[in-house]
Simulated scan of single mutants.
Amino acid sequence: MSDPVTPMPRDGGWAAYTDHARRLAALLQNERSRAEQQATASRSGQAALDQITHRLATQRQHLHQLAATLRLPEPHIGGIAPSPVPDPAEALRRAVAAADAADTAAEHAHRQAAQPPLLPGLTPLARNALVYTAAATLGTLASLLMFAVSPDADLGRIPWQLVPWSLCGLPALAFFAGYLTISLVGQPRIGGGGTRSARAGGVICFVGMPILWFIFIAATRG
């Protein structure tokens, strides 16, 4: 007994079969392409995540070093909270933007710390000269006030007991006051480059103040 012969599909059935086969092949190709795209996006996302994680670790170390240099309290960096953004790509974009903003803020703080708190826009010599001049001016005013309230001045005599103070004591106080002011608020906190201009301060206080005192004596005696 011979095997039954499978009947060939009619032309209409064969066309439908080939059409479904083409559709199935297209679906499989689309699924394969979509899977490859997802795998590529996953690898790119993982690389971006690793990069931002490394960047945040570097930022944390830099913040601790900057706080120690500026003698500020150590920054407290808490744990990572879950992101409210459901899209991973958008969450990564926001994380990169936040890291950029943190870098900008740290750079701004670094620039400010590299400038002294007192008169940051001036050169060190100009700033120190102004400080010493202000101290010398106050010292000269104190010397003239002591001269004015002295009983000898009322009698038309030079108060010789005030001469050591006017020529040595007050200039020394003015110099050390200016030197201390520059040391406290006239020096950059990081980066170095600061100077106290002790020689210029000595000229301003120990030469300028006696000259002003002698001018005052000459004017009152004349």
Rank of each mutant, 00 (worst) to 15 (best):
G192C: 03
T133D: 13
P84D: 05
L24Q: 10
I211C: 14
A39D: 13
H54Q: 15
E31P: 04
L24T: 09
R43V: 15
G202Y: 01
A67S: 08
A57E: 10
R93V: 10
L27K: 04
L173M: 15
C168I: 15
Q46G: 05
L27I: 10
S150Y: 05
L138S: 02
F176M: 10
A113V: 09
F206Q: 02
A114N: 03
I158C: 03
R196N: 05
V131W: 00
I52P: 01
R43I: 12
E90W: 06
A41W: 14
A95D: 06
Q112I: 15
I215F: 12
R93K: 07
A91W: 01
Q46W: 09
T123C: 06
H110M: 10
A177V: 07
P210S: 03
A48R: 09
L173H: 08
W14S: 12
Q37P: 01
S83Y: 06
A106L: 15
A39V: 05
S183P: 03
L24S: 08
L144M: 09
P120H: 05
M146N: 04
F175P: 00
S143A: 15
E31H: 12
A41C: 11
F214K: 02
R71V: 05
T40P: 01
R55W: 09
R94L: 14
I215L: 15
D100N: 10
P88Y: 00
A99L: 04
R22T: 12
G121M: 04
A153F: 11
P210V: 01
E74Q: 11
P124H: 03
Q161E: 13
E36C: 05
C168D: 14
P124L: 03
T195P: 01
L162Q: 07
L144P: 02
S44P: 01
Q51F: 02
S44W: 08
